[in-house]
């Protein structure tokens, strides 16, 4: 098993990037893993992006920085441009084409589009559930995460709209299947 799993999420303010990281972290704790999560601070937000860096590991975590993300959730063009160079070959970029319009062809890693905003609007008449869709995809693609526990964590961190969130999660999960 891998020493540590790094998940980086970045986009602009108001997209729930910190919430995304928090849910993944919560799932990690519930799975009995060690977790660190650095959320973006003021300087970054004024720099035009918001970032969550989550590290999951069976052992105590030293560096909390995502320097070689296993998974990069890119929710804005600026975020994609800022962090794509970090990606190792084995990593995967999960991006929402509604926000990341141009994809670099020169990267070695896998890049997967998840039209979360569009799917959320289509299924629920609102983009509100895009993040649960993304989390469904992340739960499937990131080996260390347990699907059911991620759902539990979503419901714990977001106390409203349980049915919609559960369904959105499944749509995302199936989409990357």
């Amino acid at each position: 098993m891998k020493e540590r799993t790094e998940i980086l999420a970045s986009g602009f303010g108001g997209q729930g990037v910190v919430r995304l990281g928090q849910i993944i972290g919560e799932a990690g704790v519930r799975q009995g893993l060690h977790v660190t999560m650095l959320k973006s601070h003021g300087t970054e937000m004024r720099g035009g992006y918001v970032r969550s860096q989550v590290v999951l590991s069976k052992d105590a975590i030293d560096s909390p920085i995502c320097e070689s993300p296993d998974c990069f959730i890119a929710l804005s063009g600026a975020a994609y441009g800022q962090f794509r160079h970090l990606m190792p070959k084995y990593g995967i970029i999960l991006y929402d084409p509604a926000f990341v319009e141009e994809i670099s062809q020169s990267l070695d890693c896998l890049q997967k589009a998840i039209p979360a905003k569009e799917l959320s609007s289509k299924n629920f008449g609102s983009p509100l559930f895009a993040n649960s869709l993304v989390l469904g995809a992340v739960a499937r693609l990131v080996g260390i995460l347990d699907k059911d526990i991620v759902v539990e964590s979503i419901l714990r961190v977001m106390p409203k709209f349980h049915d919609e969130n559960r369904r959105a999660f499944q749509i995302g999960y199936d989409y990357v299947g």
């Binding site: 990281g21 928090q22 972290g25 990690g28 704790v29 893993l33 060690h34 977790v35 660190t36 999560m37 650095l38 959320k39 601070h41 975590i61 909390p64």
Partner: peptide, 10 residues
């Protein structure tokens, strides 16, 4: 420091 007080961890 700020990362200890504001950072999230298990």
């Amino acid at each position: 420091d700020q990362l200890i007080t504001d950072g999230w961890e298990d």
